[in-house]
Design a protein around this nucleic acid. Sequence first.
DNA 1: AAGTGGTCTAGACCACTTT
DNA 2: AAGTGGTCTAGACCACTTA
Lengths: 261, 261
Amino acid sequence: MAKTGDRARTKAASALGSLDFALDRGSPVPLYHQLAQQLEAAIGHGVLAPGNLLGNEVDLSVRLGLSRPTVRQAIQSLVDKGLLVRRRGVGTQVVHSQVRRPLELSSLYDDLEAAGQGPATEVVRNEVVPAACDVAAALGVPEGSEVTVLDRLRLTHGRPVALLRNYLPVPLLDLDSARLESTGLYRVMRSAGITLHSARQTVGARAATAQEAARLDESAGAALLTMRRTAYDDTGRPVEYGTHLYRASLYTFDFQLLVRP
Amino acid sequence: MAKTGDRARTKAASALGSLDFALDRGSPVPLYHQLAQQLEAAIGHGVLAPGNLLGNEVDLSVRLGLSRPTVRQAIQSLVDKGLLVRRRGVGTQVVHSQVRRPLELSSLYDDLEAAGQGPATEVVRNEVVPAACDVAAALGVPEGSEVTVLDRLRLTHGRPVALLRNYLPVPLLDLDSARLESTGLYRVMRSAGITLHSARQTVGARAATAQEAARLDESAGAALLTMRRTAYDDTGRPVEYGTHLYRASLYTFDFQLLVRP
DNA sequence: AAGTGGTCTAGACCACTTT
DNA sequence: AAGTGGTCTAGACCACTTA
């Protein structure tokens, strides 16, 4: 029988034979995360090409001086991201897809991401009003209680792309219009100590009214994308409700889905 | 000092003190999955109410006769689903949200889910054609090579809601129009041994052409929701490309997002 | 039969939060 | 100071795939 220590290459040459991973045990970054980052970088750079096998987890853990559960945790995080696929009895492979770096799951950050392509925001309205029925229901406050309403016009390359309307519980934070023109709402909320946790979105479409068309530089009756979103913090309390309009000619939602096993 | 065996209730009475979990070690279902299912059921039934603490992981593992990593794996899966929140130094709580059972992430299965509300499909076209430019690019086949094109009209409650157009690589499977009228495309693919793994979607809007309007029982120029989707199997190979049209007056996309920590 | 990932254990130490 | 989750270890046995 082969000795345990004999780790000559098995049938499938592991694609990362010469790859060296620099793990810093003194770093506050967990080891499994360091490993995951470096694996992801290797995939991103093409060092690990689609279809390549990773080599079995036991050898890998020995080579890296880690325990197998730690190596598994790193690999699992990339499987969850859709970069790797595991097959029992076969091995772990780099996924074989054309869409290598997809848009994450995002779309919660669409406002912020848009900032990469010519950001501009105009705060049209920022005041406290009594909550209407739908707003009260979404935010979980009594109807008629005070909420902040925020209307913004978002532009890219000097052209209007979206009308954003948001409602927030008043006690949450005070909204500085100036700051809101230079950054996204979520960034403002985050720096106020509000950590977003989940959101529920509904995307639809309808024709523009004359007034909407005028603001968005479209003709009346043009198709608009609509989005309603309620966002929740850590504890599940609603912290924001928004009803937004996007010019369909300039904007689409795209996202990647992973099928849970 | 308190003895180790002393597991009288600590400061926060664990909400599942009297809950009994039936774990079957003989079952092929993993223990962590059995535990996760029963926790999820307890949350669903309201036995574990929002805000309730779960009790610390060490005690829990002792009570259940499991190791702590196994208990953690069960809890983690529910955290990933958005049902639980962990806080270091505090504990694990049932999330405090109004939207308890959201639509999963779904939307890949929208066709199938729709079957719950008055399903009907009419196969309008099912034939082999040479691949156009965009189709070839999406499916990763040479332009002009043969692909199957499938046009379907989807109705609910007797009214048309969507025009679905799908392209598939020919060698993949042969599509039985009769079966496609009684179930969804993905179900047919699945029973042919094709396991979907991920998909990339783009949602937009535009006005209906006269022909589209006629088919969908809308007036010309009405706002339609558009969806383009490419779906991939385990290995990352594209297995389906679809361009769909939905009546915005009858259909919206909704989904839940979780923010990655 | 050999090799792979899937599951599970029984500990350990650390970082963070609350009292 | 006490209690919590976060990380990590060094093994073990099993189920599945391939040859």
